[in-house]
Design a protein around this nucleic acid. Sequence first.
DNA 1: CGTGTTTGACTGACTGTTCAATCTAATCGG
DNA 2: CCGATTAGATTGAACAGTCAGTCAAACACG
Lengths: 213, 213
Amino acid sequence: MADMAPATPSNEARRNQMLRAAAELICERGFGETRIADVAKRARASSALVIYYFGTRDRLLVDALRYSEQNFYDAAEKMLTEVESARDRLSLLIRWTCVPENDGDVPGAWGLWFDLWAQAFRHPEVKQDREELDARWRAMIVSIVKAGQAGGEVGSVNPRAFAVTFSALLDGLSIQVALDDSEVDPESAYKIAMDYAVRELGLRKPRRKRVAS
Amino acid sequence: MADMAPATPSNEARRNQMLRAAAELICERGFGETRIADVAKRARASSALVIYYFGTRDRLLVDALRYSEQNFYDAAEKMLTEVESARDRLSLLIRWTCVPENDGDVPGAWGLWFDLWAQAFRHPEVKQDREELDARWRAMIVSIVKAGQAGGEVGSVNPRAFAVTFSALLDGLSIQVALDDSEVDPESAYKIAMDYAVRELGLRKPRRKRVAS
DNA sequence: CGTGTTTGACTGACTGTTCAATCTAATCGG
DNA sequence: CCGATTAGATTGAACAGTCAGTCAAACACG
């Protein structure tokens, strides 16, 4: 019940250390099997300190899920700024979700999705959080499509409708990949998603970049 | 560690009773929060008896997941025999996964998927099981498509490829519905999936039934 | 010193599992 | 038909281990 230490700039390093450790462990062992003692050990702290920061095991774990997914999206968004065409952006997005690369400092969000979903299914607070996250994800797709349309690269589709369907498809494919289904390896998942996007959006070559006009 | 009582015809009733109780509880509280004492109570038995049958909590819970999903597919397969056209069959399938109806005696597999996935992600035994289940699901889709092609209702597509993509789409949509995302209610999920199938398969009116020829 | 960290030691509750004992319903021998 | 025998079903009570959360004391450090 002890109220947790408020998040101050000075804490933040330690906090994140713990959050990352927790996320890693959840990913490895699962939400239900993640003990605070383990988190503490991995974060080189005592169990008591972890409680001191998060007050309760549940808050720690849920925060860790949030933290990890957030980073996942942050990284994705940042990554998108580094290419121009809608095609490249979508390609990146697909690879990001369907192909195991986990180069980020954050533990690959792979297993975390499952636990996030499982938690969201029963705890309203988490549910709402997840929904916001997903909305953000769809917003990314929408903005890619709109930019593509503005640039003449993408035909006339309803961006929102496309985003809903496309993100559902990506979720489904990433599940198979994460559980390494023998019929849906990363490459074919990528191909499926890319083909769908190309066909659905009527992707053409983008107009020459502004610089050249 | 005590080896569990073997499954005999005489046990079966009790066994199933426990499995169902376990499945229900997993669905409500989640895998990690399901105590065998609760399962025992709901199945009107003692904790000791549950162990007597399943040997260990993990086996009980995993078996319960299996049991439930299996029933889910059994029911789906049976249901398919009751309509003729590919369109109707697909419609049924979509409704079955995306629209909450849980009329079956088995607890709606909704929340169970998440836990099944989470377990499969870390335990190879479960992983393999899940893969078989999914293969079965895709096989259903494939057979629907092939039958539809034979009946002239479905154009020329690769049934397997369609099945992979379509099932991924369904998974993704059902997640949103299960977590009742505000942007993907059951009806729109149904529409999305159905539209996709219609377009992808080039669904036409089926040939008149054999009887009339 | 005083405030915010950090910890080791502790505990109290929970829960999976064991076990010895009972109960039940067949099976069998005569 | 009946008493003995047995195998399986069932349980209450005890056991043993685990683990989240508490607490008072030490620590760092401006």
